[in-house]
């Protein structure tokens, strides 16, 4: 008699798992072959030399260029802040329309709000910027609108999920006092989602500082414009200075956002 053999999974399941891995590996291999076929490998082998050359040209940074980037840096912060504020303004009502428990009409308004959120999220800030630059022209305005249009989806999604997760007993208690629908929202729902509202706002603002630093590459204002120009003119010491400035802005915004979120919780 053979001793019983212990196995972690049944044979069928094991095959399914191996099949899944094999399929995944094939997809990745196919993808890699596709990329490698259209890559000029001679250029790639040259990369370490290129990188070394670039790095050596990048130091020291051109500090005297600093005054020139103050205005773009100011624009960058403004794009992020005003864009985030605009997004909050637009996304808050959308989130209330999208949440199952607060939507005034589940068959029309809710799907509408959900698709606004889906479309806004699927399209990157930079693509929004690309579109808006052709519509409103290059500049800060296009940047603000682009940041707002992409943030609506992010903000709206997190807020409506928070609204759906509130404690229904609190809204029920307010309804039982004879409060109107608006009062039920103001007393039963708003206090419960306020921490999420504030937390997500600062979090998104922090992300938007990062995003708005590159919007200039497509002409939508901010420091990205200088970055792009310096790269195409091969002015590497200037590039270094701009990168340091962006890095500093990102660190500060991350610190502010972490502090504010810690204070809320």
């Amino acid at each position: 008699m053979t001793p019983p053999v212990w196995r972690r999974r049944t044979t069928k399941m094991q095959w399914a798992i191996w099949g899944g891995w094999l399929f995944g590996a094939l997809v990745v291999a196919q993808g890699w072959r596709f990329i490698s076929d259209i890559t000029l490998w001679d250029f790639v082998w040259d990369a370490p030399a290129q990188a070394g050359d670039m790095l050596s040209r990048m130091v020291p940074p051109r500090w005297d260029y600093a005054p020139m980037i103050l205005k773009p840096l100011w624009d960058t912060v403004n794009i992020a802040t005003l864009g985030t504020l605009l997004a909050i303004l637009l996304a808050t009502p959308i989130a209330f329309l999208a949440a199952r428990n607060t939507s005034p009409h589940a068959l029309t308004l809710r799907p509408f709000a959900l698709s606004v959120i889906a479309v806004s999220r699927s399209i990157n800030t930079l693509i929004w910027a690309l579109l808006l630059v052709t519509i409103v022209g290059p500049g800060v305005l296009a940047g603000i609108l682009a940041v707002a249009l992409h943030s609506i989806g992010f903000f709206g999604k997190l807020l409506y999920e928070a609204i759906e997760e509130i404690d229904p007993a609190q809204t029920e208690a307010i309804a039982a006092t004879g409060a109107s629908r608006a009062q039920i929202l103001a007393y039963g729902v708003v206090p419960q989602v306020l921490p999420t509202f504030a937390g997500v706002s600062v979090y998104r603002w922090d992300i938007n500082i990062r995003e708005s630093a590159v919007l200039g590459i497509v002409g939508a204002g901010g420091i990205g414009l200088q970055l792009n120009a310096s790269v195409s003119q091969l002015a590497w010491p200037r590039v270094t200075l701009i990168l340091i400035a962006i890095f500093g802005a990102v660190l500060v915004s991350e610190w502010v956002s972490a502090r504010v979120r810690a204070a809320i919780v």
């Binding site: 404690d167 007993a169 609190q170 208690a173 039982a176 007393y187 206090p191 306020l194 921490p195």
Partner: peptide, 18 residues
Amino acid sequence: ARRRMGMIFQEFALIERL
């Protein structure tokens, strides 16, 4: 009409953050 019917709940149902 609901104004005339006060309600008291098991889990209190207060607005916790107010």
